[in-house]
Design a protein around this nucleic acid. Structure first.
Lengths: 190, 190
DNA sequence: GCCCGCATGTAACTGGTTACATGATTGT
DNA sequence: ACAATCATGTAACCAGTTACATGCGGGC
């Protein structure tokens, strides 16, 4: 079965919902899977070519000249199931915010504070987006089978965003306290 | 200033705490920054060589033959401050669990449930680790200046882990409900 | 004598991004 | 006419992992 190519999974998955062009595929991944997945053109087109070679998707040169719509085939669906069942390959963590905070003593309290504030605003924005998705009426009847699964990922986003906000508030309080105790130390010295 | 190499930041940061060998550096990053950062030997050694060339760290061939301890220099500290102040470069998200759940209809309810259970157990384990770190008395006096910053990252880990647990419970309930409504539909048809 | 842990490093590979080249279609 | 968007693809580059080669020192 060769190695599990995660891009293949995402592409086949998206095409299992509906056929589309490579361009639309990228847009769809961006808009719909955006909060937990990312693909670039440089990945999508070669992957589509490879999937076509393996008869897992079928190109239908249509819609307009120079563009083609890709549809998943029966064997493509089978392949998707197999790919989804493979073990998750964990991504090694690389959190730039935490790295900066960990060495925050060198960065300074003020810079830390603004980093945390930025993170908080970001989480707030994301949380709003998830709420919007949840209350979006689109596709109520279409994709009725898929929707509950999709909502699981939205819920995960909401929980994560809420946790980020709560952490940020706590962190801001802690930074204030560090500030205060630093002032106190200075006071005592003078 | 060339491009911001994140590995440089991590290495200089770790060496700002105390001098150590490349090997120890990797262990330290693993054990201490492990929940939000990762570096492999293949990154660390070339980075150390480059930092040495730029006089940002100083090699002291000591401890034993064939090994050398690296210490951060004054200009290394300055560089660290500059690196920390640079904008965070966001990592494009790639969450294998969410990808599988999103296409959960193809994967099947049972497989989804076990994925969520696994994720829950993982979060629980992480949460325990954070609690252990927090109540670890080590380095109370040493690194007193750094500790409050370090605790910020621990707190972030705790919040994230708790959120993951809460989400998992919600997701499991949702999966149960999907199961039930699927059964009901079957019932009606028979 | 042998294995394990410490230690350093390199080479090959991979997964991925970015930038570029190209062109059709649509709307203004 | 021109700009924006849709659309396809390639090439260059980069970050990072994995695997490998090598060797010392200490414990069994």
């Amino acid at each position: 079965m060769a190695r599990a190519n995660q891009t293949e999974t995402a592409v086949l998955g998206a095409l299992s919902v509906e056929p589309m062009t490579g361009y639309a595929l990228r847009e769809a991944i961006r808009n719909v899977l955006g909060h937990f997945w990312n693909e670039s053109f440089g990945q999508i087109y070669p992957t589509l070519a490879e999937l076509e070679r393996q008869r897992l998707v079928k190109r239908r040169g249509s819609s307009r000249p120079g563009s083609s719509t890709f549809a998943i085939t029966a064997s493509g669906r089978a392949r998707l199931k197999a790919l989804l069942a493979q073990p998750i390959q964990p991504v090694p963590p690389r959190n730039g915010l935490m790295l900066r905070l960990f060495f925050g003593r060198h960065l300074g309290l003020e810079a830390c504070r603004s980093l945390v504030l930025e993170a908080r605003a970001d989480a707030e924005r994301r949380h709003g987006q998830y709420e919007a998705i949840r209350h979006e009426p689109e596709l109520e009847e279409d994709h009725a089978e898929d929707r509950p699964f999709w909502l699981l990922t939205v819920s995960a986003g909401e929980h994560t965003a809420r946790a980020a906000i709560a952490w940020a508030d706590e962190a801001l309080a802690a930074l204030d306290e560090m500030d205060a105790s630093l002032d106190a130390r200075k006071e005592r010295r003078s």
